[in-house]
Design a protein around this nucleic acid. Structure first.
Lengths: 254, 254
DNA sequence: AACATGATTTGATAAAGATCAAATTCATAT
DNA sequence: ATATGAATTTGATCTTTATCAAATCATGTT
């Protein structure tokens, strides 16, 4: 987290009204590690805010890429769609996270990004952001870090999809979601999932029925309490154990 | 590809000897889209070359991050290792590709990167690269593109692991490998795989036996010819069909 | 409040792929 | 060339999870 003094509200230009310094996420998003003057520049790069209702699209596959979006509040799912109609959700994004990083290279959105609930976005025109990154010290590095982090997150998901059992995947998801909730200042044990069982299945590479059965099983085992999308985590340590259940042959590999 | 005249060899400073302009990949790697003067700057940023033998490590999980590596010749695998010892290979990299993008954010390598055969690397100290990206027009953008592309590639793999059958995964891998071979100027139908069946399984989320059986099946069906790691693709169109086999219910989803 | 619609849970069965096991082929060093 | 160990192939069986089906539970609407 950054250490901007929230008391020092000197700036009040209209363009900044809806910008980073007023954002409740100040310090989580792009601005991490930037000085106050740089924050002003960044705020100037924000084109506008968009409010989406549940089910509305941030982007559709094939849309031309012009801007990244930072989530100010709410949440989204990113859906990759196969030629055969199969859906793979590659990420759920929460406030402070950046959308559209996968669209830079082809200048087209490769996926549908859909709001899971009412969601507020900051639109960051990419050309302006790039120009700014050449001038604001630290911003370029920050962008590299954020993109690198996205690569890393996806690698963790690859590990889950390729090598973990259904049980391990759901436990890992719950722990990850818990951690992110906590980083946003919410309870790490009282989760309100914004996505359906179907979404969760499409993310974890499982059938929705399997996801549902696992929730029931975890509840029977006393690990969690399930009330629809309201989940209480009773035992984080045991959930962590579940993610690490040793495979049959723990032998080292070449 | 760029259009540098290979006949115009004006530069011969030692530091450039082993650098981009002399590289057989000129134009594929970072330099894509840069002018000749910028290429010189880039070449200056290259610290050194490293030659690795089969099985040697580019990085080990936890190593401090200081540099990206560009593959000049050879190939690598990137192995994510789970707490329980399970291995997931998140990428195979070929000449012209950049290694270490996932290490920027934490300033540590999150994975083992291993040479699959004798492999030559260019070491690009990241601090120098970042400084250069602030000065050389287009280099920052190029780096953003490359990182975005990495995100995209991983999303494709996520789709494979989460939603495709074993058959579809192997067919998709063969087509992808074929395309990259072709882009490097090799035959798109005569492949020499540098990785073992075990590696392929660890990449595709399958048991090595399943991979082996699929090779045999594809051969029986006349799609390919298998001689160990030497693979001849007989029918690219049919392989493409295999990747698109419709699932039981092609119904649209919410 | 009753209804309609979609989401979730639970059950029964089937299929895909993992695992265990063994034979065969390949590669490398002597 | 030959031996040795690793990689690959093939077979038999078992587990996990998908699929199909139906009941129940929410949610929002008129």
């Amino acid at each position: 987290m950054t250490s901007h003094d929230p008391g020092a509200k000197i700036i009040s230009i209209p363009t900044l009204k809806a910008a980073c310094q007023e954002c409740s996420l100040n310090g989580i998003c792009l601005s991490l590690g930037l000085g106050e003057a740089d924050m002003k520049s960044l705020a100037g790069a924000i084109k506008s805010r968009r409010r989406l209702k549940k089910g509305e699209y941030v982007s559709r596959m094939g849309d031309p890429f012009r801007a990244l979006y930072a989530i100010s509040s709410g949440s989204t799912k990113t859906c990759e769609i196969a030629a055969d109609g199969g859906v793979q959700i590659t990420a759920f994004h929460l406030p402070g996270e950046l959308l559209g990083l996968d669209a830079i290279s082809a200048e087209r959105y490769p996926s549908d990004i859909v709001a899971l609930e009412t969601t507020d976005l900051c639109e960051l025109p990419f050309e302006r952001l790039e120009a700014l990154a050449l001038e604001v010290p630290g911003l370029q590095h920050q962008l590299f870090r954020i993109m690198s982090r996205e690569v890393l997150e996806e690698e963790k998901l690859l590990l889950m999809l390729g090598r973990m059992s259904a049980e391990e995947r759901l436990a890992a998801f719950l722990l990850n979601f818990s951690k992110r909730h906590q980083q946003l200042g919410s309870s790490p044990t009282e989760l309100r999932l914004p996505m359906s069982r179907q979404d969760l299945g499409d993310y974890l590479g499982l059938a929705l029925e399997t996801v549902s059965r696992l929730f029931s099983r975890f509840q029977e085992e006393g690990l969690i309490r399930v009330q629809g999308r309201q989940i209480k985590l009773h035992n984080l340590a045991k959930l962590r154990e579940v993610t690490q259940h040793l495979p049959a042959s723990p032998a080292a590999r070449a």
